[in-house]
Amino acid sequence: MSRAEAAPAGATAVPASAAARRWGLSLLISEVTTTFRRWRTLALLGVLAAVPVLIGIAVKIETGDDGAHGGGGPAFISQVTNNGLFLVFTSLAATLPFFLPMAIGVIAGDSVAGEAGSGTLRYLLVAPAGRTRLLFAKYATTMAFCFAATLVVAVSALAVGALLFPLGEVTLISGTTIGFGEGLLRALAIAVVVALSLVGVAALGLFVSTLTNSGVAAMATTVGLLITVQILDQFPQLSAIQPYLFPHYWLSFADLLRDPVLWDQVLRNLGLQALYAAVFGSAAWARFTAKDITV
């Protein structure tokens, strides 16, 4: 919590502050349940769960007659037929550039602007929790969705992979072989890294969401920004600024599949996401706590 908020709250009365904190927790719980009960959220998760199914079936049909594969398509796809666990990595590599951040953009963009648009924001603000707390609850909810979305992709991919393809020892991309259990652990670590890769876009979406009262506008802006940045990341002429674009190191999660693990880019990715979260999170706070809520 910010000092700006804690100081006056502590000055008035201790019980009030404790009550507010309790209220903050229940606010978070109610935010999470409302978000995850929405049909929109469930539909997004459903689409994300369908992606590994599609990839799995496509790979199964395509390589049914001939095992040879040129190496095109998403990362790791050539290993999927031999080890279903690789479907997890392929699915995450396929969804990370657009599907996952787009879903995050929808949830984050809607978080504040959607409430403002439907006129429910003012009722949330009537409660004594304060705006900072509400913003934190909104951001935490978006983060929860990041993890849920990534897990949905990973678990769905693992299930499809286990159904359609053999499982077993995993050959890492460096050529060394590890057991299936360690492979699962690495898959879990990758899912966590992928979820954390979305922290930056979530903060960006939250900031955009505080700028407008239209949920649709906020979602469209966030997704539009995402696409713009992804395109900027493709031009070799812009290589000077690319290390500071939030999607630049996204695919570095594959470095966890090397032996020994190559941490450089993974850590750089997490640092960059933290930076985006700090900058746009505080920008969202500055905007939201100073904003007049008219509807």
Partner: peptide
Amino acid sequence: MARIQPTPGTDGATGPDGDG
């Protein structure tokens, strides 16, 4: 419609002098 401004106590922002 009435405007809801940041709560002075909890948000410590605008203070009593208000908007403008």
